[in-house]
Design a protein around this nucleic acid. Structure first.
Length: 642
DNA sequence: GCGGATCAC
DNA sequence: TATGGTGATCCGC
């Protein structure tokens, strides 16, 4: 279990590349599994291409810091274990597990749906010639890669020049955000039919509680999701993948997709801890250090986790082990927003005047966004990234509300002045301690306007704004970052289901949080600072919203079975990836022919003036919700001993 | 309240 | 030949 012991003494080897560094360089999506064979070569190419760069050096530095941090945690562990009554501890935890288990609620059917390689699919839709070819969307940093490109190890978030090395024939396709927004709106619109209070997660995925829909339409969860997928394909010609890992207990058992505690636990047992929302690259390594690679290992190592509850968050992990998550789904509410900001990366600058110019641009952009979305705030945070990739933030709280670019710029300049001289490659501004200028309850004037407008939705209002109309064809929500489907690679590798999907083990404990409290909250475990050592605590992701309960949205990894479900016809095939691809192509072409005329809008790509990433507002869609902006699954907390 | 970190998308 | 942008949360000060 001990991965590399921290002490990197090895003066001999100058820059020894640790396994973790190579993995880190491979990118955040570097899940696990897989293609050990090729992946090694791929990682080598990526590493070689990066070597020597400032980016590389920074990654190396972070990797070393993490190694040191892990070493401290291991020492803490050893001290804690020494003399501890492990048997007693485990017995206590087993009781805790029973308590948590007793709160499992299988009454809600919650699904996570996700468009398949969204950006790439849209490009393919608009340019069929790309079919079968390795292509990537985006320049500089790739927003997504086609399935054919993924075979070369190319992933979203990867630098274009690295991708080119992995696949010289790679075709680069520019982003067409307006198109993605358009289709995203269509898809979200469809999702809302199944759950009006669905929670969008980025532009191409969402969480839906389809319990009511199934009841009202006398449908099973499978039928409902199948119907949803067909509707999405019929109306957008895009494929959507969804899988239901949960189902409601039916009166008359005839469950194919078992939905009982045992089946769920069985599913979770071999699931990589990395698949758990909130467990990123860092926490994956920390957990690995104490012998936890899979959710099943959580149980195995429960005593250690208990002794180090502060660092890892025992309850959160036990819930994960049991496959118990939050069972509520709710759209984000406007008032939940905590911040709004803008930032830009550029070729490193040292010249203060030029830096100020960049700052002014960011300030103007932020003012524009704040104005369009109706926010103002009291704290301004300047962010800048040094030439070395080290990120720094400097904040200032004020006694009044700020939102004008002149002031944002002035504050940013002041904060930056204290840091000079600097050579930076990014600068940004963020405003927090927000006040909602559209809050009808606290703003009489606004209320008047809104009622006069007869439209409660801020979004529609925005739509009336000419300026907004222009650069906004976006979607409801903030466009997600890249990383459309980081896990798809693995899935493909595993021969598992393609796409992503799904999910959810819905269960939940209505409230471990509020209720019985026997379970020490997952949410915010008491933290005593005991050791000042590095620690990290895992906390429950807040994903689907609402509660703070953990919510394991797990994307199923294939069971190594060679069974594939066609995303189009839903048929299960026993074949390999190529066979599946061929079948999918067939289904797509047939569907395309059939649906062709209907809404053929092949639409011309809107090369127009799309400005950067989509902004949060907008609409065009009738029923969109108030905007949810980026969501977060956050569980981990970290603390690091410096 | 501030700054660093981690994570998701 | 040059590694993104937006938002959230947590921890230790």
């Amino acid at each position: 279990m001990a991965s590399k012991l921290a002490t990197e003494l090895e003066p001999a080897k100058y820059s020894q590349e640790t396994e973790s560094l190579v993995k880190r360089l491979a990118g955040p999506s570097s899940g696990k599994a897989g293609l050990a064979k090729d992946q090694t070569e791929i990682n080598r190419i990526i590493s070689d291409a990066s070597k020597g760069s400032k980016f590389y050096e920074n990654e190396k530095k972070k990797d070393k810091e993490l190694t040191v941090r892990i070493d401290k945690i291991l020492k803490q562990r050893d001290e804690a274990i020494n003399g501890a009554d492990i048997a007693k501890i485990e017995a206590d935890i087993d009781q805790l597990i029973c308590k948590i288990e007793s709160q499992r609620d299988l009454t809600q059917i919650i699904v996570h749906v996700d468009m398949d390689a969204f950006f790439a699919s849209v490009e393919l839709l608009d340019n069929p010639d790309l079919k079968g070819k390795p292509f990537a969307v985006g320049k500089g940093i790739l927003t997504t890669a086609s399935y054919d490109a993924r075979k070369y190890g190319i992933r979203s978030g990867m630098a274009g020049f690295i991708a080119k090395k992995l696949c010289p024939e790679l075709i680069f396709v520019p982003n067409h955000y307006a198109r993605y927004s358009e289709l995203s709106n269509q898809v979200m619109d469809i999702f809302h039919r199944y759950d009006p209070d669905m929670c969008p997660a980025g532009c191409d995925e969402g969480y839906l509680n389809i319990t009511s829909y199934c009841e009202e339409h006398s449908m099973t969860a499978e039928e409902c999701v199948q119907d949803m997928r067909e509707t999405v394909f019929r109306e957008t010609k895009l494929t959507m993948l969804a899988k239901i890992c949960s189902d409601k207990n039916k009166p008359n058992g005839q469950f194919q997709l078992e939905f009982d505690p045992e089946s769920i636990k069985s599913f979770m047992y071999d699931l990589s801890i990395r698949k758990v929302p909130g467990v990123g690259r860092v926490n994956e390594r920390l957990l690995d250090a104490i012998g936890i690679k899979t959710c099943g290992n959580i149980f195995t190592q429960r005593a250690v986790l208990s002794l180090m509850d502060k660092q890892f968050g025992l309850v959160f992990l036990l819930r994960t082990y049991l496959g118990i998550a939050n069972n509520t789904v709710q759209a984000h509410r406007r008032e939940e927003r905590k911040s709004i900001g803008a930032e830009r990366t550029f070729a490193s600058l040292e010249n203060i005047q030029k830096i100020h110019d960049k700052l002014a641009e960011v300030a103007a952009e932020l003012e524009s966004d704040m104005d369009e979305t109706g926010w103002t705030g009291r704290t301004v945070t300047l962010k800048f990234k040094l030439d070395t990739y080290q990120v720094c933030t400097r904040a200032k709280s004020l006694d009044h509300w700020v939102s004008k670019k002149e002031e944002l710029y002035a504050i940013g300049k002041e904060l930056l002045a204290a840091e000079l001289p600097v050579k930076i490659r990014l600068i940004g501004l963020r405003v927090t301690k927000l006040k909602d200028l559209r809050d009808t309850a606290t703003n009489g004037i606004k209320r008047f306007f809104e009622s006069a407008n007869k439209d409660e939705s801020p979004r529609k209002k925005a739509r009336l704004d000419p300026e907004e109309f222009e650069d906004n064809d976006n979607m409801d929500e903030a466009m997600p970052g890249y990383h459309e489907n980081d896990e798809t690679d693995y899935k493909l590798e595993d021969d598992s289901l393609e796409g992503d999907e799904v999910i959810d083990l819905t269960n939940t404990l209505e409230d471990v949080s509020g209720g019985e409290t026997a379970v020490s909250q997952t949410r915010r475990p008491p933290h005593s600072t005991s050791n000042s050592h590095a620690s990290s605590k895992l906390e429950p992701p807040k994903r689907p919203r609402s509660n703070s309960e953990a919510k394991p949205v797990i994307k199923p990894i294939s069971k190594t079975l060679e069974m594939h479900e066609c995303p189009i016809c839903g048929k299960t095939l026993e074949t390999d990836n190529q066979g599946l691809n061929a079948h999918v192509d067939f289904c797509l072409s047939r569907g395309a022919i059939m649906e062709a005329q209907g809404s053929a809008t092949k639409s011309i790509k809107d090369t127009s003036t799309y400005k950067g990433w989509p902004k949060p507002e907008s609409s065009t869609k009738s029923n969109s919700k108030p905007s949810t902006f980026g969501k977060t699954r956050r569980p981990v907390a970290s603390k690091r001993g410096k």
